[in-house]
Computed example of a mutant assay.
Amino acid sequence: MARVTVEDCIVQIPNRFELVMFASQRARDISAGAQITLDRDRDKNPVVALREIAEMKLDQAVLKDSLISGMQKHADVDKPEEVNEMAELEQELAAALAQGGAEAAQPKALPMAEEDDVAE
């Protein structure tokens, strides 16, 4: 394939596994329509990706981020934590016990339904 290009890339990215992963992700990006930073010269996308890496035309941090996002099945979105009603009730109970003793800790009575509102 492009042995000279691979040997040039090893200088930039010494780990061969990372080199293959970065080059394959860059080749996929090129196939998806990413802008090429050098002349193609009738080379295929993997060779163009290796040449870009060898000539340090790409930022390795950007390549790594692209690789990670390309491998993710779905992106985790930080959601606000759901309100835990039981924890709130426990906190209210603890506060009531601290302030007024056992009398304040009694559960609040539910409003009684009117006789007319009750279904038969």
Rank of each mutant, 00 (worst) to 15 (best):
Lys73Leu: 15
Val47Ala: 15
Arg42Glu: 11
Ala49Ile: 02
Pro14Arg: 07
Val62Lys: 03
Gln12Leu: 08
Glu82Ala: 15
Ala2Lys: 06
Leu67Val: 07
Ala98Trp: 02
Glu92Arg: 11
Gln12Val: 15
Leu97Tyr: 03
Met86Cys: 10
Ser24Ala: 14
Arg28Cys: 06
Glu81Leu: 13
Ser24Glu: 07
Asp59Met: 01
Lys57Ala: 06
Lys57Ile: 01
Asn45Tyr: 07
Pro14Met: 04
Glu120Asp: 12
Pro14Gly: 11
Asp39Trp: 02
Ala87His: 07
Asn15Gly: 10
Gln91Asn: 05
Asp76Tyr: 05
Gln99Asp: 09
Val118Asp: 04
Ser31Pro: 03
Gln60Gly: 03
Glu55Met: 12
Val4Asp: 14
Pro80Asp: 10
Asp116Val: 11
Val47Asp: 10
Ala94Ser: 12
Asn15Arg: 14
Pro14Phe: 02
Leu58Ser: 07
Gln25Tyr: 04
Met71Ile: 09
Glu7Pro: 01
Arg3Lys: 11
Ala49Lys: 02
Ile53His: 00
Leu38Arg: 08
Gln72Gly: 03
Ala102Phe: 06
Arg3Ala: 13
Asp39Val: 12
Lys73Ile: 14
Pro111Asp: 12
Lys73Glu: 13
Asp29Arg: 08
Arg28Pro: 00
Ala75Ile: 15
Glu114Trp: 09
Leu67Thr: 11
Glu120Pro: 12
Ser24Trp: 03
Lys57His: 05
Leu93Lys: 10
Leu38Met: 13
Gln60Trp: 01
Asp78Thr: 13
Ala2Tyr: 01
Met56Pro: 02
